[in-house]
Amino acid sequence: MEILQGNENTNPEEFYKSLKEKLENQHDFPEDYLFKFIIPTDQARLTEIYKVFDGIKFTLGNRESKNGKYTACNVNAFVLDADQVIKIYQEVAKIEGVILL
């Protein structure tokens, strides 16, 4: 798992605790929340990400890098609370090669 925001020295448990506090302070749940990921261009990985959002209302936006090596994946999903956002990030983080933004 690679997380671009925050301190690289923070362990995942501390990161998600801090993220929950920020989400609760900055968002008015339930609401649409924009998830952003970067992955090596691979349809199977995109499909794995989409499966995480099964049962959730969402819209997609994907864009390949100039050389086609990477794909930026944006998922705008209706979430109920900060815990749901964190659960989604944790599930996507299990997918090999995904960078969470």
Rank of each mutant, 00 (worst) to 15 (best):
T41L: 06
V85G: 09
K36V: 07
D54L: 00
L60E: 13
C73D: 07
I88A: 02
L101P: 10
L60S: 14
Q43C: 00
L80R: 05
I39Y: 02
E14A: 11
E91Q: 15
E64H: 09
S18Q: 09
Q43P: 04
D42F: 03
L80E: 15
L101R: 04
E13N: 10
E48P: 02
E8G: 03
E24F: 04
P30G: 03
I3Q: 02
S18Y: 11
Y33S: 03
N76Y: 15
E2W: 03
V85R: 00
A93H: 03
L23K: 01
G97W: 04
P40Q: 14
V92G: 05
G55M: 08
K22P: 03
D54T: 01
L100W: 00
R45E: 05
K69D: 05
Q90H: 08
R63H: 05
Y33D: 08
I38W: 01
K57A: 10
L60V: 06
A77R: 14
K66L: 07
V52S: 02
G6C: 04
E21Y: 03
I95S: 11
T47W: 07
K69H: 01
R45I: 15
R45S: 15
M1H: 06
Y50I: 09
I49F: 10
F53S: 09
I88H: 09
D32V: 03
G97I: 06
I49N: 09
K66T: 06
H27C: 07
I95K: 13
R63L: 05
N74M: 10
K51M: 01
K87L: 12
T47Q: 15
G61D: 09
Y70F: 14
N74H: 02
L100H: 02
I99Q: 09
T10W: 04
Y33T: 06
H27D: 03
Y16S: 02
N7S: 02
K66W: 02
P30R: 06
G6L: 04
K51F: 00
V52E: 11
F35P: 10
A93L: 12
K57Y: 05
Y89E: 12
I95W: 10
A82Q: 06
Y70T: 13
I88S: 01
E14G: 05
V79T: 07
K94I: 08
D81S: 13
E14T: 12
E21V: 12
V98M: 04
